Simulated assay, not measured.
Amino acid sequence: MRILLVHNPKAGSKEHEGEDFIKALKKAGHKATYQSSKEKGIAKALKKRVDLVLVAGGDGTVSKAARHLVAMNSEVPLSVLPVGTANNFARSLGFCLSAKELIERLNDGKCGTFDVGLARGPWGKRYFFEGAGAGLFADYMRAPKRDGKKDKPKSKAEAMRSHVKELRRRLQTYRARQWEIEVDGIDLSGHYLLWHVMNIRSVGPVLTLAADAKTNDGAFDFVGAREKDRDLLLDYFDARVAGKRRKFPLRASLFTKMRLRWNKWPLHFDDELWPAKDETPPKRCEIQLIVKDSALRIWRIE
């Protein structure tokens, strides 16, 4: 196959160098070209004739490449070498093999489809693939990071546990906030500790908020936690910090369209926040989130 490798050079370890991936792809019989996700030129590279876009990186790198493909209405499939930290996108597709094994099995893959989220607001339109939401997690993304003098986590699991531990600490004093939300014509407005529109099962530090979410069912999963759910959230975070498996305690509901009135608090779309720190948004505005059925092609390797 003719493969474009979109690689995040800062993701993974020394075993995940772009040059090594290119060599492995050529050894497997593919014609591979390289594009760094940290440099300009992704859109131009995607316009060249290729059979597959292979992303080596984390969720942010996957979203960057996927946004370009969807905006171009491309029929070229995307696949993932999950060398990031959380790898929520890859997890949702069942990519549990090593990068080496995935490359060796590329020829055995099958093309499938993936639903894409479309958000319309003051910015125009933007696509998202993992999910969108507000409250505790979005505010944590916006908050200044703690002093980096402490030892860095030694593993991905420890890094995720560290984030969950901090979310748990913040939740103890976090105030629920009023949101005006309408889902498929049903008013769900109220005070929320957090709410999320899930396109896949997990978000952020592998918070599996919608365990039954499907990536090609033409619908989102809505999950919302109100003040009465605070203790349930604390218990869930406690279990995660302790390394225990625990199903998220709140039920998700399917929907296809959301309308919300925004007036102050940050929203996240995948790993990006709106409004950006240097952006001056309107005081109030309406935002719509809808599903674009099967807007992205995926090369599944099992």
Rank of each mutant, 00 (worst) to 15 (best):
D59F: 00
A143T: 15
L46S: 08
K23P: 05
E286A: 07
I3N: 03
V206H: 15
N199T: 06
D184K: 10
G112D: 09
F248H: 05
L136F: 04
D217L: 08
Y127C: 02
G12N: 04
L260R: 00
W265L: 13
D184H: 12
K110F: 11
D51G: 07
A90F: 02
A159N: 12
H16N: 08
R226I: 01
E39D: 14
L81K: 03
L193H: 03
T215I: 12
A219C: 14
H163N: 12
L273Q: 05
F222N: 04
W265S: 15
F237T: 01
G60E: 06
E19I: 10
R161G: 09
F137Y: 14
F137G: 00
D108R: 09
E272Q: 08
G12T: 00
N107H: 14
R126Y: 04
K38C: 14
V83F: 00
A99E: 02
I22H: 05
D212A: 15
I287L: 11
I42V: 13
A119D: 06
F248Y: 08
N87E: 08
H68Q: 14
D184N: 13
N216P: 05
R49D: 14
K40H: 12
L97D: 13
K156D: 14
C111H: 09
I290W: 02
G117S: 06
R126Q: 15
M141C: 14
D231T: 12
K40A: 14
D139Q: 11
E302D: 13
N216V: 05
R175G: 12
L260E: 01
D108G: 08
L69C: 06
R168L: 03
D293T: 08
D238E: 10
V80Y: 02
D115G: 02
D293H: 11
Q35D: 06
V223A: 01
M141Q: 07
S162H: 09
V55Y: 00
K145I: 14
E302Q: 07
G224V: 00
I301L: 13
Q35L: 01
Y127E: 00
R175D: 09
K152P: 06
L234N: 09
G148I: 12
L81P: 01
Q288V: 10
F237L: 04
A242S: 15
A119T: 01
W262V: 01
Q172K: 14
V197W: 01
V6T: 05
K283V: 12
P281N: 07
I181H: 03
I181C: 13
A157C: 10
L273I: 15
G218E: 14
K292L: 07
R170E: 15
E19R: 10
E272A: 10
A11L: 04
